[in-house]
Each structure stands twice: as C-alpha cells, then as structure tokens.
C-alpha cells in the first residue's frame, strides 16, 4: 500500500514537471532572450543560454520609455481598481447569492449578456463620454469604469451560495444586521474566492492596453503596456529589449501571485462550518 502511494507520488512529480517544462518553455525563452547580445537573438540553432549576460538590454529597455512613471501608475491604478472591484463585487454577489428580490434572474442574465459583447465595441462611445465629462487624462477614467466586474460577481456568487442559510438564520436571532453578517461572517469564510477575484482583477488591470492608450495623452497618465509598444515598429522589433521590458513587467505580479496563492489555499476553513 505504501509502495503504491510512493509510486503515485513519483508519477505525479514526473507528470507535473513535464507539464511545467512545456508551459514554461516560452517564458524561459522570454527571459533568456532578454539577456542576449543583439547578434545572438536569432541564431540557428538557438542558443539556450546567452554566451554573455547582456544586462544592457534592461538598461536600454528601461530608458526607452518613462517606465518609472509607468510603474507607479500601473501600481496605483491596479491597486485602486482592485480595491474598488472587491468592494462592489462583494455587495453585488451577496445580493445575487443570498437575497431574494424582484428581477433577480433577469438582472443576472443581463449582466452575463453584457459580458458577451466585445470590449472594443465600447471604446468610441466611452471616449466620447469621457471627453464630454472631462475625464480624459485622469486616473478616474482608468479606474472607475473597471471597478465593477461581472466575472467577479459570478465567481463570488458561486462561493457565497455554498455558505449555509442556517448561519444567517442564527445570526438574525442574535440580532445581527445583514451588513454586519456579510462582512463579519460571509467575507472571512470566502477569503479564497475574494483573493482569486482580486488577483484576476489586478492582472487584468496591470495588462490593460488599448483602454489606457485611448483615454490618455499625457505620458504621466500612462501605464506599462503602453511602454511595451515602443519596441515594435513598422520595420522590425527590438526583440531583446521587448523581452527585457516584458520580464520586468511580469515580475511584480509574479511576486504577488506567489504570496497570494498561499492565501487562497490556506485561507480555507470551510469544513469547520458544515
């Protein structure tokens, strides 16, 4: 029995490792290319490891656009959007999961319906709106339209639904308000779901490109993905530098994810309430 268990573990590791290698191959290629001297980027057969670590790519990439400012903006916009989204989503998801109200199904289906339109459809009308109310080149236009998330509501609704109704009945007997119940009981119990929602929003916000570009003209208002556009032109791509800039762009989320994933695994104490 124990032998079988050990064997199973080994097989698991081997399979996982193989999958990781496949998945990480493009990523590895990105990082290793970011260190290559220019003549080595395209050689055949490919160089797995650069002959010398060409750190200058990073320096050049960093100076190709105002990345200091872009990083600050990306952080600010992503953090604010995420906070805003988590708050609006918790309320909305709770209403859909645990409250009985007029028009619930129609509303939920309509929200899902909104998701089915391509985002590109919204660009021009939203730009017209933004310029009418003077929101172009502001943080508001980069944040506020994105603090509501249908995806997030849908996800959290699934989470909240699994919380037994008896808890709310008991809380009511203790004279607990709905608001208090939501924040003191439901939210802590749904920490993994909330962190998942927050993480996805953060990544989405971090990588948003066209919206930022359309809504802003001042370099001081723009974010990292706009910076990544400077490495491409009609005549070619500065490959090594694009890869260097992309690696830098990924790092912060990578670190956040590494810590967040422990949260959404460890944060579960669900079995206790059943």
């Amino acid at each position: 029995m124990n032998l079988r268990k050990a064997l199973f573990k080994i097989v698991t590791y081997v399979v996982l490792l193989a999958l990781v290698v496949i998945v990480l191959l493009p990523f590895y290629w990105m990082v290793t290319t970011s260190f290559k001297p220019p003549g080595e980027v395209n050689v055949v057969p490919p160089k797995w490891v650069p002959s010398e670590f060409h750190w200058q790519n990073y320096l050049k990439a960093w100076n190709a656009a105002p990345f200091n400012r872009y990083f600050v903006n990306s952080f600010f916009v992503s953090v604010m959007t995420t906070i805003g989204e988590v708050v609006t989503t918790i309320f909305a998801a709770y209403a859909f999961a645990k409250m009985d109200f007029f028009g619930k199904r129609v509303l939920f289906l309509s929200l899902l319906g909104l998701m089915m339109f391509p985002g590109q459809l919204r660009l021009i009308p939203n730009f017209m709106l933004a310029s009418k109310i003077g929101w172009t080149d502001t943080y508001q236009i980069l944040i506020i339209p994105w603090i509501a998330s249908i995806f997030g509501i849908f996800l959290l609704r699934q989470y909240f639904k699994t919380i037994p109704d008896e808890l709310w009945d008991a809380a009511q007997l203790d004279g607990c308000s709905r608001f208090r119940f939501l924040w003191k009981v439901v939210v802590p119990l749904s920490k993994p779901g909330i962190i998942t929602v927050a993480l996805f929003k953060f990544v989405g916000s971090w990588n948003a490109f066209l919206w930022v570009l359309i809504m802003t003209n001042q370099p001081g208002m723009r974010t990292i993905p706009v910076g990544l556009a400077v490495f491409r032109s009609e005549a070619g791509t500065h490959f090594a530098e694009l890869m260097a800039a992309s690696t830098m762009a990924v790092m912060p989320i990578l670190i956040i994810f590494f810590f967040a994933q422990k949260q959404f695994i460890q944060g579960v104490a669900r079995s206790g309430i059943k």
């Binding site: 990781v20 998945v23 493009p26 990105m30 971090w206 694009l242 992309s246 994810f257 994933q261």
Partner: peptide
C-alpha cells in the same frame, strides 16, 4: 507553490511578449 506559480505564469505574461515568443 512553485508549481502553481509556474502554471500561472503564461497568463500574466503580456500578450505581446507571449505571442512574439510563439
């Protein structure tokens, strides 16, 4: 944790970079 992070990486890689590599 490392495994999970590895599988998550493609999703956070900027589309331009990922596609260029592809």
């Amino acid at each position: 944790g490392w495994f999970r992070t590895a599988f998550f990486l493609p999703w956070i890689t900027p589309m331009v970079a990922g596609a260029s590599v592809f």
